[in-house]
Amino acid sequence: MELYEVDLMVNNRAVSARIKAETTLLDFLRENNFIEVKRGCSKGDCGACTVIIDGRPVPSCMTLALQCPGKKIYTVKSLGSWDKLHPLQQAFVDHEAVQCGFCTPGMLMTAKAFLSDQPHPSREEIREAISGNLCRCTGYQKIVDAIESVGKGGEYE
């Protein structure tokens, strides 16, 4: 079986590996310790594995790692840290937008990219924007509340 050398930029860090042709970005990330990227359906339906590639949220299970050299990939760990949460992360905490937490990394990345494009969205626009990210706990209300509060805050970079 043929292996391929690949160098990717993840959270502004170079990561190299020898991988199989069919290795998805999701597999690549998790095997290289970016386990904050969650494996849900692996078929592009649930959005749990969403990362931001060149400014756009995409399901990392639907992208080959070999398609990503030269692209800027960001996982949820690029947002904030325990000591200094990103405003979106803080909003998810404040609004109790997290229950089991499995969808949260993907949800945050979709919200991050969305607010960068559209800093002051309506609730309907927020719902549409996160419609590819499934959450089986919250019923979405609190997630929409959290994203809306950051949009309304107007301090989002």
């Binding site: 959005g47 756009r56 949220p57 995409v58 992208t63 979709t110 419609s131 590819g132 990210n133």
Partner: peptide, 9 residues
Amino acid sequence: FANPLIRNI
């Protein structure tokens, strides 16, 4: 079409 994530790819 599909959803916003899939529309991106």
